[in-house]
Amino acid sequence: MKKLALFDLDHTLLPIDSDYEWGQFLVRTGAVDAAEYQRRNDQFFAQYQAGTLDPVEYLEFALGTLARFPRRELDAMHRQYMAEVVHPAIRPKAVELVQRHLDAGDLVAIITATNRFVTAPIAHAFGVEHLIAAQPEEDEHGNLTGKLAGTPTQGQGKVEHMHAWLGRLGTPFDSFASSHFYSDSHNDLPLLSVVSHPVATNPSDRLKQHATAQGWPLLLLFND
């Protein structure tokens, strides 16, 4: 029977928050008003860390920023972002962990609350075909409208989106011999609690405390 391996992205496979750093990149390159964007981005990031973030409010703030630019320009900006921010942040231990699951023939996916525009090239950089992420709405020309298509991929939403994705593949969750989920965040407790092998990866203090109480393994990928 096939095995399932799921990975959160930010602070799990990457030692950065890709969404927050995308915002910092926009500020640094002058693509947005620095003072206002910095204020809102920092505010949302603090809410995320505290577990109080309204995911729709945040996503439509972030997607509204993306909607200001034609898709061709956005894609060029993202290539620069990957070269300057993401690729230098990727750690060998994270790449090796993903590759072990791929080499074993496991079904591998990255599942993240960050939107697909930001994260699809990052998943590709890790060699992962399947990505479950917040879906930006697009117009008929492929430009982003600033709205969220569907529901957020956060908290319990990750569980729901995982089941929907596996349903589309024709491989229901209970058909796997085992399932791993690697995450750093207590926000991911709903999905960590349903897989057979939850792994607290570079865990926050809150997740570390919970994982220790549950006897879950702890994994550090960024201590090299």
Rank of each mutant, 00 (worst) to 15 (best):
L4T: 00
L6W: 04
D10C: 13
H11A: 10
L13P: 02
P15Y: 06
I16Y: 12
E21N: 11
W22L: 09
W22M: 14
W22N: 06
Q24A: 08
V27H: 06
R28N: 11
A31N: 14
A31E: 14
N41A: 07
D42V: 07
F45C: 04
Q47R: 11
D54L: 06
E57G: 01
Y58N: 13
L59W: 07
L59I: 07
F61Y: 15
L63G: 02
R68A: 15
R71V: 08
R72C: 04
L74M: 13
H78F: 05
Y81G: 09
E84L: 12
V86I: 15
P88F: 08
P88L: 09
V95Y: 00
E96Y: 00
L97K: 00
V98W: 03
L102S: 00
G105M: 08
L107C: 01
A109C: 10
T112K: 03
A113Y: 02
R116D: 12
V118D: 06
A123V: 03
H124L: 08
F126K: 00
G127F: 05
H130Y: 14
H130S: 11
A133T: 03
E137Q: 15
D139Q: 11
H141C: 10
T145C: 12
A149D: 13
A149Y: 10
P152C: 07
T153D: 09
G155N: 13
K158T: 04
E160Q: 12
H161M: 09
H161S: 09
H161D: 09
R168E: 14
L169N: 10
L169G: 01
P172V: 07
F176D: 02
S179L: 10
H180E: 01
H180R: 00
D184R: 02
H186M: 13
D188E: 06
L189K: 02
L189V: 11
L191S: 05
V194Y: 03
H197T: 05
P198L: 03
T201L: 06
S204I: 03
R206Q: 15
A211D: 10
A211N: 04
A213Y: 03
A213M: 09
A213K: 09
W216P: 03
L220I: 04
F222D: 08
N223L: 10
D224W: 04
D224F: 01
D224H: 10
